[in-house]
Simulated scan of single mutants.
Amino acid sequence: MPSRASGRATYRRWSRRRRTPPLVVLADARTCTEPGRPLTVVDLYDTPGQSTVLPCREVGSMACNLEISNMDFHEFVAVEAVEP
Rank of each mutant, 00 (worst) to 15 (best):
M1A: 12
M1H: 06
P2E: 12
P2M: 08
S3L: 07
R4K: 13
A5P: 00
S6N: 05
G7A: 12
R8K: 15
A9E: 13
A9W: 07
T10H: 07
Y11Q: 14
R12F: 05
R12N: 08
R12S: 11
S15L: 11
S15P: 01
R16K: 15
R16A: 15
R17V: 06
R18L: 14
R19P: 02
R19N: 10
L23Y: 04
L23I: 13
L23C: 13
V25E: 13
V25L: 09
V25Q: 07
V25N: 05
L26V: 14
A27G: 05
A27N: 07
A27Y: 06
D28C: 04
D28L: 00
D28N: 13
D28S: 08
A29C: 08
A29R: 13
T31I: 03
T33F: 04
P35N: 00
P35Y: 09
G36P: 05
R37N: 09
R37P: 00
L39A: 03
V41C: 03
V42L: 08
V42H: 00
V42P: 00
V42T: 07
D43N: 05
D43Q: 02
D43H: 01
L44Q: 12
Y45T: 13
D46E: 15
T47Y: 12
P48A: 05
G49A: 04
S51Y: 10
S51C: 11
V53P: 02
V53T: 14
L54T: 03
L54V: 05
L54K: 01
L54I: 03
P55G: 00
P55C: 00
C56I: 10
R57A: 10
E58H: 08
E58C: 07
E58I: 01
E58D: 14
G60P: 05
G60K: 06
G60T: 09
S61M: 07
A63G: 05
C64M: 10
C64A: 15
C64F: 12
N65I: 01
L66A: 07
L66P: 02
E67K: 08
E67C: 11
E67P: 00
I68H: 09
I68F: 11
S69T: 11
S69P: 00
M71C: 12
D72C: 13
H74L: 10
E75M: 12
E75P: 01
E75I: 01
F76W: 08
F76G: 01
V77N: 03
V77Y: 01
A78W: 02
V79F: 03
E80D: 15
A81V: 09
A81Y: 14
V82Q: 09
V82C: 08
P84S: 15
